[in-house]
Structures are given as C-alpha cells and as structure tokens.
C-alpha cells in the first residue's frame, strides 16, 4: 500500500487540549514507537484531524503508527494511548456540558 501525503500538523497542537488534564507540558513527553523504534516527543508526532475532525490522531513521524487519540467533548477529554482499544475519559471541570 502506497501512501499519499495529506496535511498534518506537528504534535505541539496537542498542547492545548492535553494541558487541561496534565500538570506538566505534555508535548515534551518522550515516546518510542513500538513498531519502528523511532524515538519522538508528543510535540514531534504527526497530528491529523486538526480541521473539523472527530478528534486528533497523533502518529509516529517515522512510520505513521498510531501513538494517541484525543477527543474533546463537552465537559470531557478522551485520551487513548497507543494502538489498543480503551480510552480514559477525563472530566474538564471548567467546561460546561
């Protein structure tokens, strides 16, 4: 399967949504891709869905493997790490549902 390049932004766009649930700047968090072994920070991920998408998808800059999904909903942030099923739903106390 070949892949065409489509627009994506770097992982620094995750700083805003993740700042609601992390006490430290999450974009500096280090990650080693389990598929291609490439090290990167969250800030270096390739992030898709920054337009009007259902959520943000962060992918390894080396092989595009799934690194995280973040879905902002009224009152909540869903955060799913890695490729498996199962996300954590964080309450956003300052956001009215």
């Amino acid at each position: 399967m070949n892949q065409l390049s489509v627009p994506h932004l770097d992982g620094n766009v995750l700083a805003g949504p993740l700042a609601d649930v992390f006490a430290v700047d999450p974009t500096t968090a280090w990650h080693r891709c389990p598929t291609c072994r490439m090290p990167s920070s969250i800030g270096e991920l390739h992030v898709y869905g920054t337009g009007p998408g259902p959520g943000l998808t962060g992918r390894c800059p080396g092989c595009a493997d799934l690194a995280l999904r973040a879905v902002a909903q009224p009152g909540h942030l869903w955060l799913q790490i890695g490729n498996g099923a199962g996300a954590f739903r964080f309450p956003l106390p300052h956001s009215a549902r």
């Binding site: 892949q3 489509v6 869905g49 337009g51 998408g53 998808t57 595009a64």
Partner: peptide, 16 residues
Amino acid sequence: FPVLSAGPTPHVPTED
C-alpha cells in the same frame, strides 16, 4: 465535501 482524516491517505491500486 469536507475531507476528514485520521492519518495519511492510503493509495490502493484497484489491481491490489
């Protein structure tokens, strides 16, 4: 017709 993506667009030739 907005394009929403969660990753790179795969290109799959019809022969494959």
